[in-house]
């Protein structure tokens, strides 16, 4: 399925949970925050939140800033 991941089209085996998506991307879930269709997904809900075709996902982390 195709989703929008950080603003770009991304092919993911799906539908899948946010947890699975992060694992697929090799991302440590403790270090990031995830938005699903513009709503923040709480870490406790990563397993239960299902990403479907066409969904918009943002995965962010902290970088240097002032």
């Amino acid at each position: 399925m195709t989703i929008q991941l950080n603003g770009e089209a991304f092919e993911a085996p799906g539908p899948l949970s946010v947890s699975r998506l992060l694992a697929t991307l090799d991302i440590d879930p403790r270090r990031v925050a995830v938005e699903h269709n513009r709503l923040v997904v709480k870490k406790a809900a990563y397993d239960s939140t299902v990403v479907a075709p066409g969904d918009e996902i943002e995965v962010v982390n902290f970088v240097g800033g002032g």
Binding site: L5, N6, G7, L25, I27, V32, A33, E58, V59, V60, N61, F62, V63, G64, G65, G66
Partner: peptide, 10 residues
């Protein structure tokens, strides 16, 4: 310390 929030570099 301040930090910025940015997209993960995929």
């Amino acid at each position: 310390v301040t930090v910025a929030v940015r997209r993960v570099n995929l």
